[in-house]
Write a protein that binds this DNA or RNA. Structure first.
Lengths: 238, 238
DNA sequence: CGGAAAATTGATGCTTTTCAACGTATGTGG
DNA sequence: CCACATACGTTGAAAAGCATCAATTTTCCG
């Protein structure tokens, strides 16, 4: 999953469900090409692609959310990342998909054939560099996630998870205090390396600490951003 | 950390300490340029670079080993990867280093100024694509590590760690059953998300299961590769 | 040889998992 | 429209695995 960059963000202050893609994009950028790529609808729980599939397209999530995950031979699952509206998935030059990508809710994606992409990258060094940069961002995000998940306690992980989503909202000019969780507790658990029970208990605990409020299980309101941050950073001994 | 590719491997069947770099390399590849880059010696425990440093060079480890890690505000440390002879570190286009890189033993690296690299990448699309590909490999490695460390038990993690190093040896035409561990238990622990005590106990346990032997703490011999693999995959209930 | 750093081993406690029960929401068919 | 089924979420009690604290042994290097 890739965060898109400034040239996109400036036009992405629309609603959560429909970031406007109608402003002209430079032809020479990845997002520029994606903005003109055809749309595809995906039902909740359906897969955009699976690990091992020949890589056919690069996708940009328009509405909805996609869960990127890997599975071990015995079925244990690790969610690598969640892609929201605006995020690009399956970027890279490998011939096969290295992850599974499952829509967690009804989702629309733009699909750019890789043939177009690799042709461009071969002709235009700036385009190839843009891909490098995007992958570099992705690498950095996975590393940060690795640090969080391995080194932090359950409470810290959940708090960090909420804060990362809050900052993502901020970058997109949405309310950083209102966080949509368009995925199940199982998805969150497999992302954070926790069981669904622990995720649930931790949300309850953060609620008890008056750091957040939860409506219907899918919308979290951050009440005390500073407190949540210090909880994420290991305040109160854990 | 980046695994280098086939065009390098064919000449890397030398000893552990001194992979021969004297065969001609194509000028147009990253490794080709690195092969001509100046050498620098680094003492054990010294840093090649630190997080936040302006990125000045791309490095290829020639001899020794480098530990790439991040630290949380409260001091907890996560080792992202270990780079051995042949591996490239600090590849990418960011302006600053995103990790700390510490030599775990006396180490020699080749240093290629980034100015040279980014200039090449801007002129030569093939060069930029090679960088993309290398970063893609790195991304894939971090993801695999994430899955291992988050989903697996202590025993599985240590077994997996040894198997990854064994396969690395295999790719370099070295003995896959003899594994050098040129780092402390603390480094391994911070890589696997375990304490030094647990790492030590787990080595002892694998020894008791007659899967490995350990000499002087730094050299592991794999006795039962198949058994080690099934231990890594979660045989015997954990 | 001596001192310090690293590794090992043991005993205990805590966090999270596991197993289980219950509650809640959503959708379907009668 | 309601009963029911099913998936999802919450809560509780017990157990497991790893961390922590502590002591000892081994290794390394001047």
């Amino acid at each position: 999953m890739l965060m898109i960059r400034e040239e996109y963000n400036v036009q992405d202050h629309g609603s959560f469900v429909a970031p406007p893609l109608n402003l002209p994009e430079p032809h020479s950028t990845i997002t520029g090409h994606l903005a003109r790529a055809p749309l595809r609808g995906i039902e909740a729980k359906d897969h955009v692609f699976s690990e091992g599939d020949p890589k056919s397209h690069v996708y940009q999530v328009v509405t909805g959310a996609v869960c990127l995950y890997k599975v071990l031979s015995d079925g244990r699952r690790q969610v690598i990342d969640f892609a929201y509206g605006g995020d690009i998935i399956s970027l890279g030059l490998g011939r096969f998909e290295s992850c599974n990508a499952q829509a967690t809710v009804a989702t629309r994606v733009r699909c750019l054939p890789v043939s177009a992409l690799s042709g461009l990258a071969r002709r235009d060094p700036a385009f190839a560099l843009e891909m490098c940069e995007a992958m570099s961002d992705e690498l950095s995000a996975v590393r940060d996630h690795l640090v969080s998940v391995v080194q932090r306690s359950a409470t810290e992980r959940v708090a960090t998870f909420l804060l990362v989503l809050s900052r993502r909202n901020e970058r997109r000019n949405r309310d950083p205090n209102t966080i949509e969780l368009p995925m199940t507790r199982a998805d969150i658990g497999d992302f954070l390396g926790l069981t669904i029970e622990t995720v649930s208990r931790t949300f309850t605990k953060l609620k008890g600490l008056e750091l957040i409020e939860i409506n219907q299980g899918t919308t979290v309101r951050i009440i005390d951003m500073v407190g949540l941050q210090s909880t994420a950073d290991g305040a109160s001994g854990q």
